[in-house]
């Protein structure tokens, strides 16, 4: 198992956001984390990476118990994170944004270089010396994913990569993530866009009020109108 999360609790201040979340992601698998706003999807990703310190529970990434470690240590083990708001370094150029995240390559994965990334996101090549702040939302989202790949991760945590993007760009993003999946990367994907999630994910986990309410294959969820209605609709 690439990622194993057991009974994870996390809070912001006094508000408990996660209450006993458990989920698994196998090597090379794409798992969609679904649910309404405030269900705890983003917090789950942040708690896995240690950005929100988990109050309780176990997180095992590629055989290492990581709950309680500093985020940079977890990241160095090969867990890449692309946040919802992209968080590009706007004063840095595309080249520098990539350089900041560069880490040694890993056995079993072809190392990422800027030139290899430009094959995945052709737009970025022409923008190499442009400051991140002067790119469109779609270009920034591509850079956010590319930047994380420079760390040569074994697994990606993607927080709503389709949010706020034009449908055409969402299609390009889908193609890129599908290519990463073919390379063998595991992905935990938070999504609101069901069309997008459905085309990429092998399995789906649905959160509600910080707890896992549904877990199954994407095909089963697509077929299960009751589950969709209960957990994803009002």
């Amino acid at each position: 198992m690439m990622l194993e999360v057991r009974d994870l609790d996390a809070s912001y201040g006094r508000a408990q956001i996660l209450a006993g979340v458990s989920l698994d992601v196998a090597a090379g698998e794409v798992v969609a984390l679904l649910g309404r706003n405030g269900a705890g999807k983003s917090t789950t990703l942040k708690a896995i990476l240690g950005l929100v310190p988990p109050a309780r529970g176990r997180v095992v990434f590629d055989g290492v118990a990581v709950a309680g470690l500093a985020p940079y240590r977890i990241a160095r083990l090969g867990l890449g994170y692309v946040p919802e708001e992209r968080r590009i370094f706007t004063d840095l150029t595309v080249r520098e944004n990539l350089e900041v995240a560069r880490r040694a390559s890993r056995q079993g994965f072809a190392p990422w270089t800027p030139s290899r990334l430009f094959k995945l996101f052709p737009n970025l090549e022409t923008l190499i010396d442009r400051p991140g702040g002067r790119m469109s939302g779609g270009e920034q989202q591509m850079l956010a994913v590319a930047r994380t790949l420079m760390g040569n991760p074994k697994m990606l945590l993607l927080d709503e990569p389709s949010e706020g993007l034009a449908p055409l760009v969402v299609e390009q993003m889908e193609a890129a993530i599908a290519a990463l999946k073919r390379e063998g990367l595991a992905v935990l994907l938070c999504e609101q866009n069901l069309h997008f999630a459905r085309r990429l994910a092998d399995r789906a986990v649905i959160l509600e009020k910080g707890q896992v309410r549904y877990s199954g294959t994407m095909a089963a969820l697509t077929a299960d109108a009751t589950a969709r209605k209960t957990y994803l609709e009002l």
Binding site: A70, A75, Y81, L92, V100, A101
Partner: peptide, 19 residues
């Protein structure tokens, strides 16, 4: 580059593996 990145978003920098 690290210093300039940290100036803007230290948490993101940590998430990318920098101490």
């Amino acid at each position: 580059i690290f210093v300039r990145a940290a100036t803007q978003d230290r948490e993101m920098l940590a998430a990318l593996g920098t101490d």
